[in-house]
Nucleic acid binder design. Structure first.
Lengths: 211, 211
DNA sequence: GTCTATATCATGATAGAC
DNA sequence: GTCTATCATGATATAGAC
């Protein structure tokens, strides 16, 4: 027998809880947001939340998981892929491709919000710290280091400095700009200047390392 | 008549409250720390705290004030001072002096902790956001921009790029390293490599802009 | 399986009398 | 400074309805 109203889709509530929690956590931090507040926004009673998550902390953990999954989906190329890629394109193209990836990331509101949550919770919560230090800082630098090493071997860029130093010099400004971006967009402030800065940075860096 | 025990020094308790609050807020964030927890560490009853601060928020405000005061104490040189300074020293010396200032800042545990608090609260609290965007980001970049402009006019550095771009390229990696430093020291991890990176960065930048 | 109703019991900030 | 109180809000459990 059919019901008048379509039954709620499976997993919809859980999804809504996560959405709302991401929104609220990213604005106020985990500790300042109550289960009451989350369920009120979702439109269910507090007790109903516990059908989907065992504890409030499990919500946070699921949010981290979303970020980790998305990062893996956007996985950095493997060593072989990287080598093939660098055979075909020059440095500026390579960097520009990375920039486009960067843009896709910051244009995804969900990822931006989770990034904010990670920033807020990083001291209180070891799990956030590990994601930031390993997945974000170390992962990116290691990747770039291997790319620049290859480019140096191919004599496509100067080898005055170590590949690791180049990786740091290229990527750290990007990190700082990302952080600034998170702040500016929070207040709906204009980010055009920042976008320009990233482009300038690529030009600057490219100009510096070219042989 | 003299008492057996020396009377508590004036303002000592208020000072202790601030110290403890900075310690706890920097580890867990404002929202996750209760007045109960603070007073327990200080060794007074909860109600006694309200002799010193009207509300919990007033504690946080005082902490921000400490940071702002310290920043003003470490004020960047004025335009005239800057000009005089740049007449005497070369770029590398100038940058190194900035680095020493940077080191003094991160070696001051109180300032480091407040910096962490600002990072944690920046989304929840407009006041923190303003301090970061204005005092830290904008203030430093504006200062460096005027310094590099002078150096370009004096033909001491290349003028291939605008002074503002140079300021960004120099300072943004420092920002990112500062952020990483806050994370590493939180876990008592080694920061030698990071220190080395700052030095490398100065060398790299100096090498790049020299005429 | 997912909701509501209702309860529990700790912890939250803060006030006033001493 | 302490003691004691207030009263909101916190996370979570359980029982029963659809």
């Amino acid at each position: 027998m059919e019901t008048m109203f379509p039954s709620r889709e499976v997993g919809q509530t859980k999804r809504r809880i996560l959405e709302v929690a991401i929104e609220l956590f990213s604005q106020n931090g985990y500790s300042a947001v109550s289960v009451r507040e989350i369920t009120k926004h979702v439109g269910i009673k507090e007790s109903a939340l516990y059908n989907h998550f065992k504890t409030k902390d499990e919500i946070l953990q699921s949010i981290y998981q979303l970020f980790t999954n998305a990062s893996e989906g956007n996985a950095l190329p493997s060593a072989e892929q990287l080598e093939a890629m660098l055979q075909q394109v020059d440095l500026e193209t390579f960097l520009r491709q990375g920039f486009e990836q960067f843009q896709r990331t910051i244009e995804n509101p969900l990822l931006t919000q989770i990034w904010r949550i990670l920033n807020i919770e990083q001291y209180r919560d070891q799990r956030a710290r590990e994601i930031i230090l390993n997945a974000i800082y170390k992962g990116t630098i290691d990747f770039l280091e291997s790319a620049f090493l290859l480019l140096q071997q191919q004599k496509k860029i100067r080898d005055t400095f170590s590949p690791r130093m180049l990786a740091v010099e290229y990527q750290y400004p990007i990190f700082a700009m990302m952080t600034e971006y998170l702040l500016l967009t929070f207040d709906n402030k204009d980010t055009d200047e920042l976008r320009q800065r990233v482009e300038d940075h690529i030009r600057y860096f490219n100009d510096y390392v070219k042989v």
